[in-house]
Amino acid sequence: MSLLPYVEAAPSREEVDALSGPTLIEFGTNWCGHCKAAQPLLEQVISGFPGVRHIRVEDGSGRRLGRSYGVKLWPTMIFLTDGQEVDRLVRPTENGQIAEVFDKWLGQEKKGL
C-alpha cells in the first residue's frame, strides 16, 4: 500500500470537528523532503490500523485548515478522536515515534468505548 499524495482540497475545520472515530490529519506537501522521508515510516505503522481515517492535506501559506491547527513545520500529524485533537507529531524521523503515538492514541480510544 502506498500513501496517496497530499491533496489541495481540504475539508473545513467544521467538517473535521464533526468527524467521528479516530482520524489522522497529516499536513505537508508533495515536494517536501521531510514529508517524503516520513512516508515509509507512517505507511509501515498505519497499515496495522485499518480503522483509522487518514486525511493528507497539502499545507502552505493561506491554507485555512493548517492555520487553524497552528501548523508551522511539515509533516505535522494531528491525531483526532471524534474531531478533537488528542495528540500531534511533528517531523517524525523513526517509525517508533509514530507507533508510540498510535499505541497511546488508540489505547485511549479503546478505553473510551
Score class of each variant (00 low, 15 high):
Tyr6Ala: 13
Tyr6Gln: 09
Val7His: 10
Val7Gly: 12
Val7Leu: 14
Pro11Glu: 07
Pro11Met: 06
Ser12Trp: 08
Ser12Asn: 03
Arg13Met: 14
Arg13Gly: 09
Glu14Asp: 11
Val16Asp: 08
Val16Pro: 14
Asp17Arg: 13
Ala18Tyr: 01
Leu19Gln: 02
Gly21Thr: 01
Gly21Ser: 03
Pro22Gln: 01
Thr23Phe: 05
Thr23Glu: 02
Ile25Ala: 03
Glu26Lys: 00
Phe27Thr: 02
Gly28Tyr: 11
Gly28His: 07
Gly28Glu: 07
Gly28Val: 01
Gly28Asp: 08
Thr29Gln: 13
Cys32His: 01
Cys32Ser: 09
Cys32Ala: 06
Gly33Ser: 01
His34Phe: 15
His34Trp: 15
Cys35Gln: 03
Lys36Tyr: 07
Ala38Ile: 06
Ala38Leu: 09
Leu41Lys: 15
Leu42His: 02
Leu42Asp: 04
Glu43Gln: 15
Glu43Ser: 15
Val45Ser: 05
Ile46Asn: 01
Ser47Arg: 10
Gly48Asp: 15
Phe49Tyr: 15
Phe49Glu: 14
Pro50Met: 05
Pro50Val: 02
Pro50Ala: 05
Arg53Asp: 01
Ile55Gly: 04
Ile55Thr: 13
Ile55Ser: 13
Ile55Met: 13
Val57Ser: 02
Glu58Trp: 02
Glu58Val: 02
Asp59Glu: 09
Gly60Leu: 05
Ser61Asn: 15
Gly62Leu: 06
Gly62Lys: 03
Gly62Arg: 06
Arg63Met: 11
Arg63Trp: 05
Arg63Ile: 12
Arg64Ile: 11
Leu65Tyr: 12
Gly66Ser: 10
Arg67Trp: 04
Tyr69Asn: 10
Gly70Asp: 03
Gly70Val: 04
Val71Thr: 07
Lys72Asp: 12
Lys72Thr: 12
Lys72Pro: 11
Lys72Glu: 10
Trp74Met: 05
Trp74Ile: 00
Trp74His: 04
Pro75Phe: 14
Thr76Pro: 04
Met77Pro: 09
Met77Arg: 15
Ile78Lys: 03
Phe79Gly: 08
Phe79Leu: 02
Leu80Gly: 07
Asp82Gln: 01
Asp82Asn: 06
Gly83Pro: 04
Gln84Cys: 06
Glu85Ile: 11
Glu85Ser: 14
Val86Asn: 14
Asp87Gln: 10
Asp87Thr: 00
Asp87Cys: 00
Asp87Lys: 03
Asp87Met: 05
Arg88Thr: 00
Arg88Pro: 03
Leu89Ile: 11
Leu89Met: 08
Arg91Asn: 10
Pro92Leu: 05
Thr93Ile: 12
Glu94Gly: 10
Glu94Pro: 07
Asn95Thr: 14
Asn95Lys: 05
Gln97Leu: 03
Gln97His: 08
Ala99Gln: 15
Glu100Phe: 03
Glu100Trp: 08
Val101Phe: 00
Val101Gln: 03
Val101Ile: 11
Lys104Pro: 02
Leu106Asn: 09
Leu106Cys: 10
Leu106Ile: 09
Gln108Glu: 12
